[in-house]
Write a protein that binds this DNA or RNA. Sequence first.
DNA 1: ATGCTATGTAGCATTAATGCAACATCTAGG
DNA 2: CCTAGATGTTGCATTAATGCTACATAGCAT
Lengths: 81, 81
Amino acid sequence: MLLTMSRNPEEPVYNRIEEARAALGLSRQDLADKAGVHYQTIGYLEREEYSPSLVLAIRIAKSLNQEVSELFSLTPFKKGK
Amino acid sequence: MLLTMSRNPEEPVYNRIEEARAALGLSRQDLADKAGVHYQTIGYLEREEYSPSLVLAIRIAKSLNQEVSELFSLTPFKKGK
DNA sequence: ATGCTATGTAGCATTAATGCAACATCTAGG
DNA sequence: CCTAGATGTTGCATTAATGCTACATAGCAT
């Protein structure tokens, strides 16, 4: 079906995907491949245009060798970890 | 819009919501209230008919005083914690 | 300049997650 | 027995998450 769309949900989730990814020297495409998603999806998440499903969050955390709770939070992260 | 529907996704996530909830003596309605969702949603999750969003997973974990990783997993849990 | 890679933006299609209502069942109490 | 509470089931509406395509831009090579 067609239909309206999304982008910018009501419930944001803060994350440090970009920092963690950069720390490993991975491109979005690289991370997307490891996590098994489209590279645009990583972009949307980094820009916090929407929040991931739990499965995706777990896969991304695993791909970045981090705990889900270290990577995602309902409250903003402080600067520099 | 109307449209087909869901129930039974391709990517299951195992969880111990029911055990943790029972351990605290909460009904589904109680937990749903704490997490701010419909009580049926808790039922679907416990029966693993679908997997939660990350925000919901975090809220439920918090409501049950557990870590997300203690409550949800991509691989099945062993018996008795 | 040309080209390549990484990234941002904008649609649109599809499917999953969630809300909600109605009803069935089962069990514990009285 | 009757009732209430908790849970399971079905159906449908709405919205978010994801895939994908196409295009724009910026930086860094050569």
